[in-house]
Deep mutational scan, measured.
Amino acid sequence: MATGGRRGAAAAPLLVAVAALLLGAAGHLYPGEVCPGMDIRNNLTRLHELENCSVIEGHLQILLMFKTRPEDFRDLSFPKLIMITDYLLLFRVYGLESLKDLFPNLTVIRGSRLFFNYALVIFEMVHLKELGLYNLMNITRGSVRIEKNNELCYLATIDWSRILDSVEDNYIVLNKDDNEECGDICPGTAKGKTNCPATVINGQFVERCWTHSHCQKVCPTICKSHGCTAEGLCCHSECLGNCSQPDDPTKCVACRNFYLDGRCVETCPPPYYHFQDWRCVNFSFCQDLHHKCKNSRRQGCHQYVIHNNKCIPECPSGYTMNSSNLLCTPCLGPCPKVCHLLEGEKTIDSVTSAQELRGCTVINGSLIINIRGGNNLAAELEANLGLIEEISGYLKIRRSYALVSLSFFRKLRLIRGETLEIGNYSFYALDNQNLRQLWDWSKHNLTITQGKLFFHYNPKLCLSEIHKMEEVSGTKGRQERNDIALKTNGDQASCENELLKFSYIRTSFDKI
């Protein structure tokens, strides 16, 4: 039985969820670079991206490699990797027998973001014989899940209580170790020597080791999670996991709180800001991140802002960003909400898709409305799209047979046209069989910064309504002859009103 693990408890099935942008060198404390989270699957090609990484700022997932063999891993080693800020997950990587050479110096898994409450997941690794993470000293947050690894031993010899604050939620089941077939031998045991430290858990006094050649490092209890030197002297209180010299914040392997210019500090002093819960960055760093993602459509890219001495992905609820200094300031009234469309555009074809934009005031991208039916549609669209004030790209209304009016965009005031449909149009209306009105132009103002209007096959939309939009939106004169079809717009509506004058002759039985 794995020490510190839980057996036999019912657990939810383990679901495996399925960018080499360097964020800056980590400095003297770390020998390499800070790398983003990685999802490495199918083959070993991307694994080489770990070569210079000291910190993975995010998670590391290595999974679904069915053609790899043990010899493929023999020359692979990433000794610079010290810390993973989120979680480490391995799933069905064939041929991998140990992690001792792959990650010989991995010391800390912070667990800032977890995989279903777990910071370390080893699942269905069919050839893994031992973990071998002999320098792993601290899992700051989260638990361990090690399950269905039929060859995995050296679990009962690990004292997880020396690595985690609590072992109650560890789930370590259905491994070879369960069948008591392992016969784990710690260093020196074969020669009758006791080389590794022994600890007591559940009444068992057991030597602690990761492999037959690597003991588990056990520091004096007084050192807590700070770690200790090879001689057993406690590291500085700002260290986490390990250090090369005692009581020196510049000799830590990793930091308990924050890293700044080669030393570990309790908090980031001005003019620095907390970033990702582990390091200090200056304003320029946060500003660069903001600008890199301002026009990016890459998933996970955030326009970072500053709030409460932190550089964070977005302002919290009730705050909006001051564009001059990136500071989050309290909103006066309802907060603006910028919604970034991942692929640059979004099609609204149902109430469900409209709900995804609920509360958005600025759309960074283009909207395509293609709704053919739905219950209580006008009210639903207004509830979900009615706060949109600005669209950076274009607005396209296409084959939306259920629409009679666009009044559900009740606050839309600006279409920038930074991206144009077919390279020309910022407003595009095609084949809307029941569209009769755009907006009530006596109450609604709309500016279209650039781009043209396109109207074709809107049989109940009168040309007068379209011409009014040209005047109000500032697009009059931009359109070419064929942009607004004269014969297919309003051709099934009563669009022309003329005053009919009647004269009559009164007659009676005795007068003409």
Rank of each mutant, 00 (worst) to 15 (best):
K148M: 09
R298I: 05
C252Q: 00
C280E: 00
C311E: 01
C328R: 01
I201K: 12
C186P: 15
H212D: 12
N175F: 10
G95P: 01
D288K: 05
C209F: 02
C153F: 01
D288S: 03
F275N: 15
S324V: 14
P70K: 11
F205R: 02
V200A: 09
P187D: 11
H302M: 11
V200W: 06
P31A: 04
H59A: 08
T329Y: 13
V93T: 13
P246I: 05
C311V: 13
R110N: 04
T329Q: 15
C186L: 08
R162Y: 12
C264R: 00
E33I: 07
R74L: 03
W160M: 06
D165H: 08
S225E: 04
I82G: 06
I201E: 12
Q299W: 02
N52T: 02
I139V: 08
T157A: 09
R46S: 14
S54A: 05
R74Q: 04
P220D: 05
N175R: 04
C228Q: 02
M83W: 03
L164Y: 14
L44P: 06
C286W: 03
P70R: 07
V93K: 00
L332V: 07
P79Q: 12
N105V: 08
H302F: 05
E181S: 11
E33A: 03
G262W: 01
S317A: 02
N135S: 08
R279A: 12
C252P: 00
G32L: 07
K129N: 05
N325L: 08
R297H: 15
K193I: 04
F283Q: 02
C215R: 07
M83Y: 06
W160S: 01
P271K: 06
D86Y: 01
P36W: 14
Q245W: 03
L164F: 00
N295D: 09
P197E: 05
I62C: 01
H214N: 12
F275W: 08
A190C: 04
C153V: 03
F66T: 07
L89G: 01
G262I: 08
T194R: 04
D177C: 07
Y304A: 07
S244H: 12
N309K: 09
P197L: 05
C234H: 01
K67H: 03
P79T: 05
Q245E: 03
R297N: 09
E49T: 13
I109P: 00
E97G: 12
T329H: 03
P220Q: 05
R298Y: 11
F283M: 10
P220C: 05
E124G: 02
H274R: 05
V206I: 03
F66Y: 10
C293I: 08
H307M: 14
V253D: 02
M83K: 03
K294T: 14
G111W: 01
F123G: 04
E238K: 07
V126T: 03
C186A: 05
R74G: 02
F66L: 12
I139C: 04
T107G: 08
T267A: 14
Q276F: 14
W210F: 02
P271Y: 12
D165S: 09
S77I: 12
N149T: 03
C264H: 00
N150Q: 06
S213Q: 06
N325P: 11
F285D: 06
E49N: 05
L120A: 05
R110G: 08
E231K: 01
G262A: 08
N170H: 03
G333Y: 14
P36Q: 08
E147M: 02
Q303A: 08
I306E: 03
P270M: 13
Y171H: 15
N179A: 10
E151R: 11
I122N: 01
L332M: 13
I84L: 03
S213P: 07
C311Y: 06
C243S: 00
I158A: 05
P316F: 08
E314G: 07
H236M: 04
G203Q: 07
Q276M: 06
N202H: 12
L120D: 00
R297L: 09
L44A: 10
K100A: 05
L76K: 15
H28F: 07
T250M: 07
P334S: 08
L233Y: 15
G192C: 12
T211L: 05
D248K: 13
E33L: 06
S284R: 07
P270D: 08
N150Y: 11
L174V: 06
C53D: 00
K224I: 09
L90V: 09
E124R: 06
G58W: 00
I201Q: 09
T85D: 01
H59G: 09
K148L: 06
N105G: 07
L128T: 03
N202S: 13
K100P: 02
C252A: 00
G300W: 15
S323I: 10
G183V: 10
R162T: 08
